[in-house]
Computed example of a mutant assay.
Amino acid sequence: METTTPLAVVTGASSGIGAATARTLAAAGYHVVCAARRAERVEELAREIGGTAVTCDVTDEDQVAALAAQVGARLDVLVNNAGGAFGMTPVAEADSAQWRAMYEVNVIGLMQVTRALLPALLASGAGTILNVGSTAGRIAYEGGAGYTAAKHGTQVVTETLRLELFDQPVRVLEIAPGMVRTEEFSAVRFDGDQAKADAVYAGVPDPLTAEDVADAIGWMVTRPAHVNVDSLVIKPRAQAAQHKVHRV
Rank of each mutant, 00 (worst) to 15 (best):
E2F: 03
T3H: 01
V10C: 08
G12R: 07
G18R: 06
A19G: 05
A19K: 09
A19P: 05
A22T: 09
A28N: 08
V32C: 02
V32A: 02
A35P: 04
A35T: 04
A36Y: 02
E40Y: 12
R41V: 11
V42F: 03
E44V: 13
T52H: 08
A53I: 11
D57E: 12
V58D: 03
Q63T: 10
A66F: 10
A66Y: 11
L67M: 14
L67Y: 11
G72A: 10
G72V: 05
L75H: 07
G87M: 11
W99I: 15
N106W: 00
I108S: 03
A116W: 06
I129N: 01
S134T: 04
A136L: 08
R138T: 12
G143S: 08
G146N: 03
G146D: 02
A150K: 12
T158Y: 03
T158A: 14
F166T: 14
V170L: 07
V172L: 06
L173S: 04
V180N: 00
A195V: 14
A197Y: 04
V200R: 13
G203C: 05
D206N: 15
P207N: 07
T209Q: 02
V213F: 01
V213E: 00
A216I: 10
T222I: 05
A238C: 04
A240F: 15
K244F: 12
H246I: 15
